[in-house]
Computed example of a mutant assay.
Amino acid sequence: MILEVAILKIKEGVSEEFEETFKSAEAIISSMKGYISHQLKKCIEEENKYLLLVNWETLEDHEIGFRKSEEYKVWKDLLHHFYEPFPTVEHYR
């Protein structure tokens, strides 16, 4: 199992909209091959900061299966405009 970790910094004033939009995006990621589970956690100390944790069966399920899919384009359109700066994504065993 691979754990994808992303610290998401959201533009000022749009956190509530981001959270609502993420609810729609959850259906996309959870339908992907190799997806196991995910959590989105809101930071207590920083208003516009979130931690996204996604468990995948393999690194390829995330990097190739998801990121090169048509579904990823929809995910990207839904969420990427909220980030500032764009998050660094790391993977852990």
Rank of each mutant, 00 (worst) to 15 (best):
M1E: 13
I2C: 02
I2A: 04
I2G: 03
L3S: 10
V5Y: 14
A6L: 03
L8T: 03
L8R: 06
I10G: 06
I10Y: 00
G13Q: 04
E16A: 14
E17V: 05
F18R: 04
T21I: 09
F22Y: 15
S24W: 01
S24K: 11
A25N: 08
A25D: 08
E26H: 01
A27S: 12
A27T: 05
I28S: 10
S30V: 02
S30G: 08
S31A: 10
K33E: 14
G34L: 02
Y35M: 05
I36H: 01
H38P: 00
Q39I: 10
Q39P: 01
Q39Y: 11
L40C: 04
L40Q: 05
K41N: 10
K42H: 11
C43F: 05
C43K: 05
E45I: 10
E46G: 04
E47F: 15
E47A: 15
K49C: 06
K49Q: 11
Y50T: 07
Y50H: 13
L52M: 14
N55H: 11
N55V: 03
W56V: 08
E57K: 15
E57G: 04
L59F: 09
D61R: 03
D61P: 06
H62D: 07
H62M: 03
E63C: 10
I64T: 07
F66V: 02
F66P: 09
F66W: 04
R67D: 00
R67M: 01
K68F: 00
K68Y: 00
E70K: 07
E70D: 10
E71Q: 09
Y72L: 00
W75Y: 14
W75M: 01
D77Q: 07
D77N: 11
D77L: 03
D77F: 00
H81Q: 13
H81G: 14
H81L: 03
F82I: 08
F82K: 11
Y83C: 12
Y83K: 12
E84A: 14
P85K: 11
P85T: 13
P85M: 12
P87C: 04
T88G: 15
T88A: 15
V89Y: 09
E90G: 15
H91I: 10
